[in-house]
Amino acid sequence: MAWRLRLAPEKTNIDFFRLQWITFGLSGFLMVASLVLIATMGFNFGIDFKGGTTIRTESTSPVDVGIYRDALSGLGLGDVTITEVFDPTFREDQHVAQVRIAAQEGVEAVTPETIEVVETALRAVDPAITFPSVESVGPKVSGELVRTAFLSIAAACLGIGLYIWMRFEWQYSVGTIVALVHDVVVTAGVFSLFQLKFDLTIVAALLTILGYSVNDTVVVFDRLRENLLKYKSMPLREVMNLSVNETLSRTLITAGTTLLALIPLLIFGGDVIRGFIFAMTFGVFIGTYSSVYVAKNIVLWIGLPRGDAIKKASANQFADIDA
């Protein structure tokens, strides 16, 4: 037998329900904690959601945030935040900072004059400075984007729920949706806790996490459905354990390959998409966890009809391809 890298032993027999009160309790706690965090600390919204202007500056001389702030303080721009950006991909003499100006009160359209004033003031303190990107979003659009973002996540959960209902049973669908909500809320909670910038790309990442998580959940459910037909008299809880154990190797290998693809992006992908990649990387962990510890627990809790109803379930299955 040739050597193979194995993330899980060939045959596992782990009782995934043994610690269910701890794991399920932990999930519940994380969700509540995330919601509390989001409610109290809120998000560090990017301009997509809050309106305003961000100017990225780049210079060959080091960034001095204090000098930048002094240069901009007298301009009456309201709330200005300046942060220096560090990244391993930057060249030796590449110094980047991000200037963020809050949306001006009562101004719908973006004023190029403001940007001009800021650029002139910064050029005065550092002649070598350039502005690789300038982005402005008016408050009207940002308000809509918040709504769209929320709706798209809700629509994605609902769409997936419907599909799972169609392909499996409604109990599976409920389990999947709970797991998805869990993943999104906890990831959002992490962004709130560390006050990481939350913009449209993070919403895309959250949606991708949904996709990954449901992928994992579906694989377990698919096996569960198959095993329920095979072991008609085995208690549901044991069939579930068997199914998770049987798919454990696949779950870990897929999480492994996905992480192997994401981690280089996290390191070398540059600061522009770091938040996005971070959200996805975190999502792989939480998505894997939730399909093992959350989704099926909900199904067990609701209970599945056995016997006749299962025959109907199998009728939903698409025909196998001719191998």
């Binding site: 719908e108 359209a109 973006v110 690789p132 990107s133 300038v134 982005e135 979003v137 008016g138 009207k140």
Partner: peptide
Amino acid sequence: TFLEERTIG
């Protein structure tokens, strides 16, 4: 009226 403006170098 312009609601959103982005320039990327």
